[in-house]
Design a protein around this nucleic acid. Structure first.
Length: 843
RNA sequence: GCGGGCGUGGCGGAGUUAGGCAGACGCAGGGAACUUAAAAUUCCCCGGGUGAAAGCCCGCGUGGGUUCGAGUCCCACCGCCCGCACCA
């Protein structure tokens, strides 16, 4: 700061730090942006807009990523309000989760206190940055009056048969003694402990999201989301069409009759090439037959324990496959031949049926395993071109990879000579006719594992009764509250090891005392899968949300957030909405109609982190240049979807521009106060500049292109400067400034509010209607026409609007600069009226 | 490997929806005015080559194609980024 004590300053300097905090606090304390009437009482969807931003996780103060998402979102929201929409713009916190528990475990913190302190810190930063949230709708997923309804949601799904318990292989961290979510496993190791994660069987709760696989896939067509997110969900769901075919064991087996084993295949046409058979190592038929075989147990244990690490650490193509020959054969139903059975790590128990017919000629994985184990590779297809012309026969002795192209069947009995698509259809039909199998659709998507051996989450509201089994806690007993005296220093789950919590219960159905609470909590993604519904009535203690309000407000019109949730939160929320729709609690098919993925804020090409020493926090920028400059800098840097490298941007430049706006406005007020305000010679140019700016900036706001909107506002600022350079400027200059402030308000809410008041307005700039342009100012009598010769620009001429082609050509050929290039006869003329004329000359 | 996206000045980026003046707007840099000086502010220059200048030539990853005309459309290739990854 310069020392101004002995310098006479003409005008007050722009000092955002002096004016922003008071305005920010007033907006918060007076609930300036609360929606009234409340959404829960609103019955009319007309003119309403539900703007949602992914709620923050309170792991510390706000970081630059939060500032980016909120800044984009707030510009959208403030613009919509000025355009006359009633906007629901809620905020809350995704407040359950692992970091609070880790803070408790490592530092002895109380997770509740730790969480609420972080929330308060984030809240004050959000307020300071001027984000216009509705402070009446605040929710925290760790509040009992929120998770009460998360538990209700669980019980709804339980009643519907969509929540169930079964044994599954889960990620087990042997150091922390706990199950980890997939996203907590990085490169096969526990995110926190660094231990190699094991796959262990455990009985867990699941949501039956696979019931909705088809709808989750098909309904993507109708929502306005970025393609990369839709594609990620399509890949995650992974629909494939094929057939199930039943094979039999070659021997009678324990029961005296051959056992049936069903395989799934997308290439039933290649069944004659199935020269061996592979089971997943955990397949029940194999484990039954290999029981007591210590070598096999060792093999199976090693495969299941190491598979996760290998999956991420090695390219699949480079990795050898591990398998063992089993002591029995299977029979290929089409050839009647016995084929050897194997168990191998490349067949997964939880996809398809956990067993495959192996066709080395036509499947790369089978080809690799067959080569490795010296198994027969039988050609059953002769390659053809796409058009069906025969190519050379395959020679297994010299092949280096499986053949997956088109062809006609050979060595395939009655199907010989058929093109492969026809063979596929015939074989599928015959499989059904003979009772050997059926067509089948399979999904990569697995059911959603929701239970966690954690203690900072909603307890699963189930009581296990020795007599009645799994019984839901009655609604009147919700919430099942977390005890306040958990000991986070214990090994394993504090909730499970609490002295009384688990056993202090009777069966709600039979009243029996031989009952215990479920000691697991729900995944934090369950909390966030429905919070956008709770925003409609966050304090209602009679229901999770009002159905009619949900029908009026859903789907969310615009959802803004990071792409890291492409297949987790965004898929889970879609499932929950569809399930709740089918339970009759709401009408919408989808939670989020439109999605905007903002880019990341990085530093010097790398993601920011404390350990890299490249961390910039919003507070640092706000304390130097103010919130307006931070917001403007972020929006000006690039389109919302693109990453921002903070090393490349300039809050100084933004501050300089805002200072210029400040000075121009104060100069206008000065002129008006001294009665010298009169428009100068540039008045027409300024009026036109305003009209051009209004049209362009409005288009940019509608397209969410805030970077170019700011560029146009800067141009308008320059036009005002030019028009008032001689200290002239009356009505027109005031109008231009007011238009500028109005259109800048969604981006820089503080300086615009302050200057708006200084210009003599008692109301808020944020309550002004969005400006419209006087289009008549843009009607011209003359236009500049670009003259090209053979497509190259050679000159420009000024013509009357609507000038006919012959006049334009005459003027163009008369232009000396153009004439120079007219070496020959004009063979052709391309005339785009009022824009361009291209004279084509023969060489 | 499969799927998706992106390549424009020293830098961030405009322009790509609909083919029609490439480099808007800014940052960084250079010069000037004002000032005792500095800061602040204001003005000028700022893709490469050539030229005193006007201008001319080249230029949007590379190579082709379509077109009167291509950063924009089509084909091939190169590079980078992001998903998924033994899913039968």
């Amino acid at each position: 700061m310069t020392d101004t004590s002995d310098v006479q300053v003409d005008a007050e300097r722009y000092d955002p730090l002096a004016l922003e905090p008071a305005i920010a606090q007033r907006w918060h304390d007076e609930r300036t942006y609360s929606l009234s009437p409340r959404p829960s009482t609103d019955r009319d969807g007309q003119g309403t807009f539900y703007a949602l931003t992914m709620f923050p996780y309170p792991s510390g103060d706000l970081h630059m990523g939060h500032a980016e998402i909120f800044t984009i979102h707030d510009a959208l929201v403030r613009h919509l309000r000025m355009s006359g929409r009633r906007v629901l713009n809620p905020i809350g916190w995704d407040a359950f989760g692992l970091p609070a528990e880790n803070a408790a475990r490592n530092r002895g913190a109380d997770p509740k206190k730790w969480t609420y302190e972080n929330i308060e810190e984030q809240r004050s930063t959000i307020v300071r940055l001027g984000y216009s949230f509705d402070w009446d709708t605040v929710l925290r997923t760790c509040d009992p009056d929120y998770y009460r309804w998360t538990q209700w949601l669980f019980l709804e799904l339980f009643d519907a048969g969509l929540a169930y318990r079964r044994e599954a292989l889960v990620n087990w961290d042997p150091i922390d003694q706990t199950v980890l979510a997939n996203e907590q496993v990085v490169d096969g190791r526990g995110e926190r402990s660094g231990a190699v994660v094991q796959r262990v069987p455990r009985t867990q709760w699941f949501f039956r999201i696979t019931d909705y696989a088809d709808e989750l896939l098909d309904a993507l067509e109708a929502i306005d989301w970025p393609d990369r997110v839709k594609n990620a969900q399509r890949a995650w769901i992974g629909r494939s069409e094929g057939a199930e075919i039943s094979f039999q064991t070659a021997d009678p087996g324990p029961s005296g009759t051959p056992e049936e084993v069903v395989v799934y295949t997308t290439r039933p046409d290649t069944v004659f090439g199935a020269t061996y058979f592979v089971f997943a190592p955990e397949h029940p038929i194999v484990t039954a037959r290999m029981a007591g075989n210590a070598d096999y147990d060792a093999f199976r244990d090693e495969v299941s324990r190491r598979s996760e690490v290998e999956r991420v650490s090695t390219m699949s193509a480079d990795r050898g496959k591990r398998g063992v020959r089993l002591d029995f054969d299977m029979v290929n139903p089409f050839t009647g031949e016995p084929i050897p059975a194997y168990a191998a790590d490349y067949v997964l128990m939880d996809y398809g049926t956990g067993a495959i017919m192996a066709v080395p000629i036509g499947d790369q994985r089978d080809f690799e395993f067959a080569t490795q184990e010296r198994l027969e590779i039988r050609p059953i297809i002769r390659p053809t071109t796409q058009d069906g012309d025969l190519l050379e026969e395959l020679d297994p002795a010299t092949m280096t990879e499986a053949y997956v192209g088109p062809g006609v069947m050979i060595n395939s009995g009655e199907y010989d000579g058929l093109p492969w698509e026809q063979a596929k259809a015939r074989i599928v039909a015959d499989v059904s006719a003979k009772g050997w199998g059926t067509t089948r659709v399979n999904y990569r998507l697995r059911d959603w594992l929701v239970s966690r051996q954690r203690s900072w989450g909603p307890p699963i509201p189930i009581i296990h009764c020795a007599t009645c089994g799994e019984i839901g806690v009655p609604l009147s007993d919700l919430p099942v509250e977390l005890p306040g005296d958990l000991d986070f220093q214990v090994q394993g789950s504090p909730l499970e090891q609490h002295p009384t919590w688990k056993h202090d219960v009777v069966c709600p159905q039979c009243g029996g005392e031989d009952a215990v609470r479920d000691v697991d909590t729900l995944d934090t993604f369950v909390d966030s899968s429905w919070y956008f519904l709770r925003y409609l009535s966050p304090h209602d203690d009679t229901k999770a949300w009002p159905k009619d309000a949900a029908n009026a407000w859903l789907p969310v019109d615009q959802y803004t957030g990071g792409v890291e949730h492409a297949v987790l939160h965004l898929l889970y929320s879609r499932f929950v909405v569809k399930a709740m729709r089918d339970r009759g609690h709401l009408a919408a098919d989808e939670p989020f109609q439109a999605l905007l993925n903002q880019g990341q804020v990085i530093m010097d090409g790398a993601s920011m982190s404390k350990s890299k020493g490249n961390l910039v926090v919003p507070g640092e920028i706000t304390d130097t240049y103010g919130a307006d400059a931070l917001r403007g800098t972020m929006l000006f840097a690039s389109a919302p979807e693109d990453d921002i490298d903070w090393a490349d941007v300039s809050p100084t430049g933004m501050h300089k521009w805002l200072s210029r706006v400040w000075r121009l406005t104060l100069a206008q007020i000065e002129r008006e106060a001294s009665d010298t305000a009169a428009d100068g010679a540039e008045v027409e140019a300024l009026r036109k500049a305003v009209a051009v700016a209004v049209i362009g900036v409005t288009e940019d706001y509608d397209a969410r292109k805030y970077n170019t909107a700011i560029a146009k506002l800067m141009s308008l600022t320059n036009a005002i400067l030019d028009a008032t350079r001689d200290n002239s400027g009356g009505e027109t200059a005031r109008d231009a400034l007011e238009t500028l402030l109005t259109m800048l308000a969604p981006i820089c809410p503080f300086i615009t509010e302050e200057l708006w008041h200084r210009l003599g307005h008692a109301d808020s700039v944020h309550d002004q209607p969005w400006p419209t342009a006087d289009a008549s100012l843009l009607v011209e009598d003359e236009v500049e026409i670009v003259v090209q010769v053979n497509g190259k620009v050679r000159g420009r001429i000024t013509m009357a609007v609507g000038a006919p082609q012959d006049e334009v050509v005459a003027a163009a050929t008369a232009d000396c600069a153009v004439a120079e290039h007219l070496g020959g006869e004009v063979a052709k003329v391309i005339h785009v009226p009022d824009k361009l004329v291209n004279l084509v000359v023969k060489a």
